[in-house]
Computed example of a mutant assay.
Amino acid sequence: MNQETAGVQSPAPTHQFTVLLSATRRGARLARLLAREQLRSWGRPYETAEHVVAELANNAALHGHVPGRSFRLALMVTRTDTLRIEVTDARADRHPPSTVRPPLPEAEAGRGLLLVEALADRWGTVDGPVPCKTVWAELACPPSSSHR
């Protein structure tokens, strides 16, 4: 479900991580690796989140790229064991589509948001601060059984 949610507050985070990365393929790859290691260090499952981060970071590098500007990855785990992934890029003028449709079978791209929609409990976009936008996704993230 894609939602535009301006001003919606998430519960206070129990864990929080933020990093600026270059809006490049290398920066997107690093976002995925950093997310995996951060979630692992918090004792949280990371496999699903890693895929969501990879897709959102790739989109930021591909569609949200502005020369000389970075994108921001933020991870927050709330008291309700919800992981919120946020990727903020410098292109508020380019939003993901509000309805994600499968690409043609012969298309070589266009499946990333289908994956995000399938894996996340909720996702959407928020404008600001100007000239930025944030694409976010939330998914259940209980502590791993080995870290309880």
Rank of each mutant, 00 (worst) to 15 (best):
A49P: 00
T14W: 13
G7W: 05
P102H: 14
T82F: 12
C141V: 03
E86Q: 03
G27Y: 04
A109K: 07
P142C: 02
L62E: 14
V130C: 01
E106N: 06
T5Y: 13
L83P: 00
T125Y: 13
A120V: 04
A49K: 05
A12P: 06
E55N: 02
V19P: 05
S145M: 12
H15E: 08
H51K: 09
R29K: 10
A92S: 14
P102F: 09
T5F: 13
L21S: 01
V87A: 11
T18W: 09
G112K: 00
A57S: 01
A118P: 04
Y46V: 06
L119K: 08
L113F: 13
R40W: 09
D127I: 07
T125F: 11
T88W: 07
C141I: 07
A90E: 02
P131M: 06
A107N: 05
V130D: 15
A23D: 09
A92Q: 14
G112P: 00
E117V: 02
G64D: 07
A49W: 00
H15P: 10
R26D: 15
Y46D: 01
L83M: 01
C141A: 08
L39G: 01
T88Q: 03
V53N: 03
H63W: 10
A137I: 02
P97I: 06
A28S: 08
A57V: 06
T14V: 15
R79E: 09
E138K: 02
W123M: 02
T14F: 13
E55I: 01
D93L: 05
L113M: 09
